[in-house]
Design a protein around this nucleic acid. Structure first.
Length: 692
DNA sequence: ACCGCCGGGTGCC
DNA sequence: ACCGCCGGGTGCC
């Protein structure tokens, strides 16, 4: 159905540097509840047989996940229905597409804001509905079937990001006469100075606003020009937030604006404060019109909120992470300990420098950084911030005694000339290999032998090295996952939304269920993700011993959860369970075994999966896999029995094996995520495809 | 990453 | 290493 590796990679997301080895993680696994069952290999077939032979047990459709009881006919009919709906999925996609690009989307903020986040679980166990809130009147329901894990998870979080970008609703500044309109003074900023050629701007310079409809980045762009007629100097732009509302006013109601610079900019590219007012007289018709009033209210609101919000002091990326933490703290208090809550909350009260430095490094690959090479214009005192962050437990600094793993990673930060220099100090006789890894290896070996002072030399010569503390790393990682509901997205998702590289439809989200019921569910899930990551890494490195260990661990994990967790959960929520992750690992393990032609082992594993997930929608696929593996070991008779007599699953009985295979192939490619609606080449190509 | 750019690190064609 | 490639950091019209 899904390629195991790919879906696992998506599940894991950005790889974390795992401290410790497998045994640590293994020992951290929940205690084995029913060990005797796991070690016994021979008795699965009985289990399988006993569950499958009861003719009328509840089965889940592999397409939509609906639970149903019934004979072959009913199941076939349902399958056909579900498969026809494949077209509908496409339709949904293009609907979303249009929604983002319909011209009326310009007025989308005219709606009551409900920033409740989460998801609605209606239309059966796997459906998620997004309620478009662009205009209240024609609010249509977009029902997105979240059948496939990567799709559902991805979309939900995408929307989540976007919800946070929904404008806060204006309190409303009611203009009732033309005079009031003309007297109103808006204080705002010229931005985008970096892109303007005109550097000269003095206090009191007169300016006018001109629409820039051909702007590639933003169709609402408004240029700020010199008021000097014929001069045509472009000083910069009005911020995107404001021009979103201002430009329809200029275009549809022929308003014009002028103003002056109220103070000189601190930096050459910095925003320039200006004061603008509306020149044109407005008819009372216009002022009474709903569209006008709403646009104007938004303009006033944007200007006001820019003034009152402490935006000036905070960079966007700071706001984004703070927002993320606040959201997570609000919705998921039950998942954190008191200490963890206070640690996360303490971040919000850190100084600007500290917050900025932390985020900068948190987003970077690392894990170690050299303090002396870090430089960020927006951070005033990096040394001071580093010190404070390490005192508060966010950072860990290099010391004279660092663990071996850390030493290797620190050495990796250095460039080859620096490493050569160190090598000269430590051991002059060593041959000079040019490969970085060779030099590091030789340095590490001398450190283990005769030069325990290496870290001290390192610090003396190259200054302090910094890494994010384990506490901070794991807590922020958790917060991030809880916010995005996947492992792939990070703070850059905000940026993409900001730059409109990705556009999201407007929607309302209502939370009906918690993703994790309690802390221990979440912790087991995190453990499982760790195992998944090790699995992924070991497959990449072709380390079949570790792969085998991961499979073993996943099996142990599965057996612990088989009783309560697996069967009660709805399809969507089950994606956030350890058992789901473990099942993915095991399935990937099966592919690995198949690749190594170890079919007997593969079959054993598959049978175990089938015995644990007795009601899982993936059973059909697993069964097919099993029958193929049986064929590989030269037992076609048994494979035929498995496939056609439905020994394992009623879904198999629903059609001939060939038909099933075709179906799985057709289902095999779940629709990609929503196409990236940007103005990039990719997007243009996609548009062509759509129109063709 | 789903973009696009820039600049540093690195290697032995 | 005057080159060419790869991959990390970054963006905020």
């Amino acid at each position: 159905m899904l390629k195991g590796r790919e879906s696992l990679i998506r599940l894991i997301g950005k790889r974390r540097t795992l401290s410790g080895d497998l045994s640590v993680i293994l020992s951290a696994l929940p205690p084995l509840v029913r060990g005797e069952k796991v070690t016994a290999v021979g008795d699965e077939e009985e289990d399988v047989a006993s569950t499958s032979l009861s003719a009328s047990y509840l089965v889940h459709c592999p397409v939509c996940g609906t639970a149903m009881r019934g004979g072959d006919q009913a199941i076939n009919a349902h399958l056909d229905f579900c498969l026809v709906k494949g077209k509908k999925r496409k339709l949904t996609q293009s609907t979303l597409f249009q929604l983002k690009y319909s011209p009326k989307a310009k007025f989308e903020s005219n709606s009551p804001s409900n920033n409740t986040l989460g998801f609605v679980n209606q239309m059966g166990p796997t459906a998620v509905s997004f309620i478009k809130d662009s205009d209240c009147q024609k609010s249509e329901n977009l029902c997105v079937h979240a059948t496939y894990e990567d799709q559902s998870v991805g979309n939900l979080c995408d929307e989540k990001v976007d919800a946070l970008y929904q404008d806060k609703m204006p309190l409303g500044s009611n203009i009732t006469t033309s005079q009031e309109l003309n007297q109103l003074i808006l204080e705002t900023l010229i931005v985008g100075r970096r892109f303007s050629i005109e550097k000269e701007l003095r206090l009191g310079t007169s300016i006018i606003l001109v629409r820039d409809p051909n702007n590639i980045k933003d169709c609402n762009a408004i240029k700020v020009l010199s008021a000097d007629p014929g001069c045509g100097k472009v000083f910069g732009y009005i911020s995107r937030d404001l021009s979103k509302y201002l430009s329809p006013l200029i275009e549809k109601f022929s308003l014009s604006f002028e103003g002056c610079v109220t103070s000189a900019p601190e930096h050459i590219f910095g925003p320039v404060p200006i004061r603008i007012s509306c020149l044109s007289p407005a008819s009372s018709n216009m002022i009474d019109s709903e569209v006008f009033r709403s646009l104007w209210a938004n303009v006033v609101h944007v200007v006001e909120s820019a003034k009152t919000n402490p935006t000036s002091g905070k960079t966007k990326y700071q706001e984004n992470l703070c927002l993320l933490i606040k959201e997570v703290l609000q919705d998921n208090r039950h998942l954190f300990t008191v200490d963890e809550l206070s640690f996360l909350e303490s971040f919000l009260s850190l100084s600007n420098d500290c917050q900025r430095l932390f985020i900068r490094l948190y987003m970077r690959k690392g894990p170690w950084f050299r303090l002396s090479t870090m430089s960020y214009v927006e951070i005033l005192n990096i040394e001071e911030a580093t010190k404070e962050l390490s005192e508060r437990g966010y950072f860990r600094l290099s010391s004279a005694e660092v663990p071996l793993d850390d030493l290797k990673r620190i050495l990796n930060v250095l460039a080859i000339p620096d490493l050569r220099f160190l090598q000269n100090i430590v051991d002059k006789r060593k041959n000079l290999s040019s490969r970085k890894q060779d030099i590091i290896a030789s340095l590490v070996s001398s450190y283990e032998g005769r030069h325990p002072c290496l870290p001290a030399v390192l610090i003396k010569k190259y200054g302090v090295f910094v890494t994010i503390s384990e506490t901070a790393e794991s807590l922020f990682w958790r917060a991030q996952r809880l916010f995005f509901l996947n492992g792939e997205q990070d703070l850059s998702a905000f940026l993409f939304a900001d730059l409109q590289i990705i556009k999201y439809p407007a929607y309302n989200c209502i939370t009906t269920d918690k993703i994790f019921r309690n802390r221990s569910d979440m912790l087991s899930f995190e453990e499982a993700v760790k195992v998944a990551q090790i699995m992924d890494q070991s497959i990449e490195e072709n380390d079949s011993i570790t792969v085998a260990q991961c499979i073993k661990m996943s099996e142990l994990g599965l057996s612990c959860f088989s009783e309560h967790a697996i069967q009660s959960e709805t399809t969507f929520l089950s994606l956030f369970s350890a058992s789901w992750v473990y099942s993915k690992v095991v399935l990937l393990g099966i592919s690995f075994l198949e690749k190594e032609h170890r079919y007997i082992d593969a079959i054993t594993l598959l049978r175990r999966l089938l015995s644990v997930f007795t009601c899982d929608s993936r059973r059909g696929y697993w069964t097919l896999r099993l029958s193929i593996d049986l064929e590989h070991i030269g037992r076609p008779t048994e494979s035929l029995i498995v496939a056609e007599n439905g020994l394992l699953d009623p879904w198999i009985r629903a059609g001939s094996r060939l038909a099933l295979q075709r179906r799985i192939l057709r289902l095999g490619k779940p629709p990609r995520r929503w196409k990236i609606p940007s103005f990039s080449m990719t997007f243009k190509r996609k548009l062509n495809e759509v129109s063709c």
